[in-house]
């Protein structure tokens, strides 16, 4: 019952918006904003299984490669910087500088070095979405409770176990927040890098439709992109809730006491 209510509430506004779009665009004569009915018809014919495999799968693979790499480097470097005060003093200004650069401007630069292949796109994604992961990890590691650290030390929990069993779990809620931000940045950069130079992928296809004046198909690509982002963030949310069940429980216990 409760779940049903939640689902209904979550779907109500999208349904209303789609309904409004449908009604308002129904009699549209404009070439650039065709009726939604036409867009949906185009969706069905455009995004066939073969087309999904040819255009969406490469995009997703780049996205996952970039995101996973950024997570690995970001968490690794974040733990090192968070644990070492001197390293932090050296790194912090540089990190702030790099973080302030809007990642899309790096696409032309990275193209010069890495060409226009998949490597370029993965590098762009890594470079853009590593910052929230890195900075959140640093903060999370720095915020590990002093009593927790004292306890670990006095029971001889040091070396690798200190990192994997104490520091990382303790910082994990904040690391997850960084990963969540990084995921949406990664999707944006996936599309942008494909718009610059590519021979396949979602971003490439959408630009291709626009250039060949296949307007309903272009719109359908945008809807697909939106759906993709939604599903990915939903999957992330589910994984996060599973991994951080202890944190939810802890917070609920603290609230009620």
């Amino acid at each position: 019952m409760n779940v049903l209510k939640k689902v209904v509430l979550a779907l109500a506004l999208p349904a209303v918006l789609f309904g409004a779009w449908w009604v308002l665009s129904a009699g549209s004569e404009s070439y650039y904003s065709p009726p939604l009915s036409k867009i949906l018809a185009a969706f069905r014919t455009t995004w066939t299984p073969t087309q999904l495999e040819a255009e969406v799968l490469p995009s997703l693979l780049r996205l996952f490669a970039g995101f996973a790499l950024a997570a690995l480097i970001g968490v690794g470097a974040g733990v090192a910087i968070g644990l070492n005060r001197r390293l932090r003093a050296v790194m912090e200004p540089v990190l702030e500088f790099f973080r302030a650069i809007p990642p899309p401007v790096l696409v032309p630069v990275i193209m010069l070095f890495a060409g226009i292949g998949d490597t370029m796109k993965v590098i762009v994604i890594v470079f853009g979405c590593i910052w929230p992961i890195l900075l959140n990890t640093v903060e999370g590691v720095r915020a590990v409770d002093s009593v927790v650290l004292d306890t670990a030390r006095s029971y001889g929990v040091n070396g690798t176990a200190r990192i994997t069993r104490v520091v990382l779990p303790s910082a994990s809620p904040q690391i997850a927040a960084g990963l969540r931000q990084a995921l949406s940045i990664a999707i944006i950069l996936m599309v942008i890098s494909e718009m610059f130079a590519a021979s396949n992928g979602l971003g490439f296809t959408i630009v291709q439709f626009q250039r060949s004046f296949a307007i309903p198909e272009m719109w359908s690509g945008i809807i697909l992109l939106g759906l993709l982002g939604f599903v990915l963030s939903l999957l992330f949310r589910l994984a996060e809730r599973r991994a951080l069940r202890w944190y939810e429980g802890l917070r609920a216990a603290q609230r009620s006491s």
Partner: peptide, 8 residues
Amino acid sequence: GRSLFPWM
């Protein structure tokens, strides 16, 4: 409350 590890 701070000495026991809440993730375990």
